[in-house]
Write a protein that binds this DNA or RNA. Structure first.
Lengths: 226, 226
DNA sequence: TTAGTTTGTAACAAAAATGTAACATTTAAA
DNA sequence: TTTAAATGTTACATTTTTGTTACAAACTAA
């Protein structure tokens, strides 16, 4: 994932939730809580997709969408409408105004994600990829493969999850506790030294000749990619 | 740091202390001394986090928290509970009511700060900027790196924590006791001279040619950045 | 100035953190 | 079932970090 998504939505809790999760999935996200500001910032931000609330304090989502379709510079921007209105006629009205998809609150983030991918895939195939990349390292979440320098590397399941975890925020240093919490199945108790051993295994696997070490040890803090 | 924090707490002295320190750290802070007002103002203020006292003149902190979790517009607001109750069962009750974290009075401001950051990072990564800067010195808390004049400097763990501590209030002079309390793990007893040695090590590390000394000795008082 | 206090510095030993290999146990696959 | 793979744990070597001490240097007050 590497697209940019803009959100126009007046409920901060939704923005927060969605933004956080989208960023976790590798999107760059910006947002606005009302229509007029949103339209302006939108043009600066140049997103690949817009998440648009129906009910806003000033303009309605439909009006915004119509505006977008009239504006040559952003007329092809894909839009997903978010709204509490579930009735059939509303859906039709929404889609008629030029919306690409339509999602009724409350929605699960996973459904939103699936729809975003679907829309992006249609409109801009290159922004959608389930690959995590860092330097010459590529992790394909769909096929569960890892490549370094274009050559495939075989990883064990834990090594894979570990690397996947690091790749979401490479460079960020994670403590052993954080790693445990995120990479190991919940509530499982393993010695913290176990992590060291798995780090060591991962290192061994992803290290190839003449290439620099990719995992950094930060003494008394944890590990990160580098 | 640039988040907004709301405090509901009936002891003015605590409000004052916490508010003052939070503002020093770049937060925007507002507060209320009772539960009912607090809930109302909270919604207007739209904070990124709530510090909530357990014992209040009207509603209890737990009731407030339950209210928040039921209210769609603020249901995801992270909450840290402050209280004098230290018993284990209370803790569980607190966390069960939907609190994100729990801090027993009396607490050190630094611990509070650390917990605030942890909670914010989880819930809203963007409100926490983790770079501390002073002159040509940059400390990156996420990647655990320190730069002077754009060049990276290697620090040991204690040197790092020491510098981090100073960077929150550069120029402010800290006594050895204060440094000890804030930089060393709780309840650990070390000679006060130990600090001098670590200061010396930190100095050695962050000093580079042709650049001025960054750590000031204030005789019989302590040290500060300058 | 001098005596007394405070701080800077280097050296050293002890403690802590990490890397690594080997081994035992669990899990999955054939 | 048998075999192989994956995993967790332990033990030990190595490296890094840390606290302390001892002494030199700097500072302060009389």
């Amino acid at each position: 994932m590497n697209g940019k998504i803009f959100i126009i939505e007046d409920e901060p809790s939704i923005i927060q939730l969605v933004q956080h999760n989208l960023e976790k999935n590798g999107f760059i996200v910006s947002s606005s809580v009302n229509g007029n500001d949103g339209l302006k910032e939108l043009k600066k931000f140049q997103p690949d997709l817009l998440l648009l609330d129906w009910m806003l304090p000033d303009l309605s989502g439909i009006e915004i969408c119509k505006n977008i379709r009239k504006d040559n510079s952003i007329k092809n921007l894909p839009v997903i409408m978010l709204t509490a209105k579930g009735e059939e006629e509303d859906k039709i009205k929404g889609l008629d105004s030029g919306v690409d998809d339509y999602l009724t609150k409350p929605f699960s983030f996973n459904e939103l994600m699936a729809r975003i991918k679907a829309v992006l895939r249609r409109s801009n195939p290159n922004t959608v990829s389930d690959n995590l990349e860092f330097e010459d390292l590529v992790l394909d979440r769909i096929e569960k493969r890892v490549y370094r320098d274009k050559k495939e590397i075989q990883l064990g399941p834990t090594e894979f999850r570990l690397l996947e975890f690091f790749l979401v925020n490479p460079k960020r240093v994670y403590s052993r506790d954080q790693i445990l919490e995120n990479v190991w199945p919940n509530n499982i108790n393993v010695e913290s030294r176990t992590i060291d051993v798995h780090i060591r295994r991962l290192r061994k696997s992803i290290n190839i000749q003449n290439k620099k070490e990719l995992i950094r040890t930060v003494r008394s803090s944890g590990y990160s990619l580098i």
